[in-house]
Every structure is written in structure tokens, then in C-alpha cells.
């Protein structure tokens, strides 16, 4: 939409509408100030320490774990769709003549010759350390405020740094196919991690490792001991609380985070890839 279109009556209407929305939203936020109902969040807080030591991880990946699965999907689909909108379409009907294709923008020409020497020689170690940092963040997801999303964007920034510093000879050289596979496999792993809970209790994504609830009399099914050990024991930690030592496991949450990380790496790098190399089926983009 061009600015020109917003002149005259249309502009006035748009401005009035925006003003009404602004006043409405701001006034309701002012009214909510100090009056926010706690609702279900109190219950979540009460229960959080029984699983992952990090409250946020239990909320995001366990209590609202299925929400996060679809969020993950939003990221992946968003990347694929925006690449498709930027680039050209995928399919045509057999035997139909095609409309003229939208001319693809030429890939950005990166001139690495003019890069400062310092950047050129220090970028590679920094890229490797960034990758390692991303992995540290994802592996400590359940204990600190890290997780799959953060790891994904850290590693994507390493990818972008590598591409910007080295151009076509980028050492971190993930191809289109690899990125699509990363994203798809990450989302697939996250989806499939719901299967153990589904097979034993019919609850999708029930955390069989932590297994907080199968002791309740109204719980409809049983979790076998083997599942509890396989998914629970590898992530067991000792929490030194005021009341004494409490052993807790976050169960399937760390695995979910790894899957999430791969999905985000695939999605965000795919967008970078499309902008830097362009999107075409014939050429893989790099190495010409």
C-alpha cells in the first residue's frame, strides 16, 4: 500500500479508526492495571517445581506443550510460505500454459575481498563458538531460561554471520535441502514425542518421564515402569530446596527442546537463504 492512497478521505477514516483502537486498548490496559485475575496461573506456579526446575520450561513445553507444537508449526510454515511468496510458486497444472513467471531478484552480490582482515580471520572461530553456545543453551533448557527457540536463533545468527563474512565460500554452508530437512525433522520429532504418552494413556504428549499424575485415582490409564525409566531417568536432577533434597526429572522436555531447536534453525536459516541466494529449483544457490 502506498502512502499516496492514504491521502484524502481514506486517510482520515484510517486515522480515526486507529485512534479509536488506540484509545480502546490503552483504556482497557489502564483498567486492568492491578485488577488482573490470577486464574489458572496460580495453579501452574504451585506445580512447576515438581517437573523442570525452570518454571517457564514446564509451562511452555508441558502444560501448554501442544500449543507450542503448533507454534513451532507456525514458524516452519511461516518460513516456507514467506519464501514462496518472495520467490516463485511451486506447482502448475499439467498441460496448462503458464503465466509469465515473476522475475526473480538477482542474489545479493557479497564482496568478501573488502572485508577487514580481522573479521575474515576471526569470523570462523566465532561461528564455531556461537554454534557451541547455541547447543549449551538448548541442553540446559529445563534448568535455565534457555531452550529450543533461543538455540535456533543463536545458530541462525551464526549462519548469517558466516554468510555475511565469507560470501559464497561460507564455511557453515547448509543447503536448501538440508534446511528443509532440518525444519521438517525437528517438527516431526516434536510431534512424535507425543507418541509414548498417547500409546500408554491416550493423552497425547503426556509426560511419561516425569509422570506426575498417574497416581491419581481418577487417572484413566497406567504408565508402564519401563517408559518412566527410559524417558525420566536420563534427565533426573537433585534440587536442593529449603525442605531438603528433591529429585525431579523433566522427562520429555529436553528432547522437545532439541526438536524445537532444529525446527527453528531450519525455518530461520531458510529465510536467510532465500534472501541471500534467491530461491530456484535448478541451481542449489551456491557454488557456481
Amino acid at each position: 500500500m502506498e502512502i499516496k492512497e492514504l491521502r484524502g478521505l481514506r486517510g482520515v477514516v484510517a486515522a480515526v479508526a486507529l485512534l479509536i483502537i488506540f484509545v480502546g486498548v490503552i483504556s482497557s490496559f489502564i483498567q486492568l492495571e492491578g485488577n488482573v485475575a490470577r486464574g489458572i496461573s496460580e495453579e501452574y506456579n504451585k506445580l512447576a517445581y515438581r517437573m523442570a526446575p525452570n518454571n517457564l520450561a514446564s509451562w511452555l513445553y508441558d502444560y501448554r506443550g501442544f500449543d507450542t507444537l503448533i507454534e513451532t508449526g507456525v514458524i516452519y510454515v511461516g518460513a516456507v510460505v514467506s519464501v514462496m511468496v518472495i520467490g516463485r510458486g511451486l506447482v502448475g497444472l499439467k498441460g496448462m500454459r503458464e503465466e509469465e513467471e515473476v522475475a526473480a531478484a538477482p542474489p545479493i552480490a557479497l564482496k568478501t575481498e573488502t572485508m577487514p582482515v580481522l573479521l575474515k580471520y576471526f569470523a570462523l572461530p566465532v561461528v564455531i563458538l556461537l554454534l557451541a553456545y547455541g547447543l549449551l543453551v538448548v541442553t540446559s533448557a529445563s534448568t535455565s531460561g534457555g531452550g529450543g527457540f533461543q538455540c535456533g536463533v543463536i545458530i541462525s545468527s551464526a549462519y548469517l554471520l558466516s554468510v555475511v563474512a565469507y560470501g559464497r565460500r561460507s564455511p557453515l554452508n547448509m543447503r536448501k535441502k538440508a534446511l528443509v530437512a532440518f525444519g521438517a525433522l525437528g517438527w516431526g520429532l516434536y510431534t512424535l514425542i507425543g507418541l509414548p504418552g498417547y500409546l500408554t494413556t491416550n493423552f497425547w504428549q503426556y509426560n511419561v518421564g516425569a509422570d506426575l499424575w498417574s497416581g491419581l485415582p481418577s487417572f484413566p490409564a497406567a504408565v508402564p515402569e519401563a517408559f518412566r525409566q527410559i524417558f525420566g531417568e536420563p534427565f533426573k536432577l537433585a534440587l536442593h530446596l529449603e525442605e531438603g533434597v528433591y529429585y525431579a526429572t523433566s522427562g520429555i522436555l529436553p528432547i522437545i527442546n532439541v526438536a524445537e531447536a532444529f525446527n527453528v534453525i531450519g525455518a530461520i536459516c531458510l529465510i536467510f537463504f532465500a534472501f541471500v541466494y534467491g530461491w530456484s529449483d535448478s541451481a542449489e544457490g551456491v557454488e557456481k
Binding site: L135, S140, P234, K236, Y247, P254
Partner: peptide, 21 residues
């Protein structure tokens, strides 16, 4: 499974993921 295997697992997972990357 040692008592607090959760302290070892991240190291192994990070190694495997590092190899993949």
C-alpha cells in the same frame, strides 16, 4: 542410571548435536 544422570546427559547430547552441525 546413576542417581543424577541429568548432569551427564546434556554433555552427551551437546556432543552428538555438535557432530551433526
Amino acid at each position: 542410571f546413576p542417581e543424577v544422570l541429568g548432569e551427564v546427559t546434556p554433555t552427551l547430547v551437546a556432543f552428538v548435536l555438535g557432530v551433526i552441525l
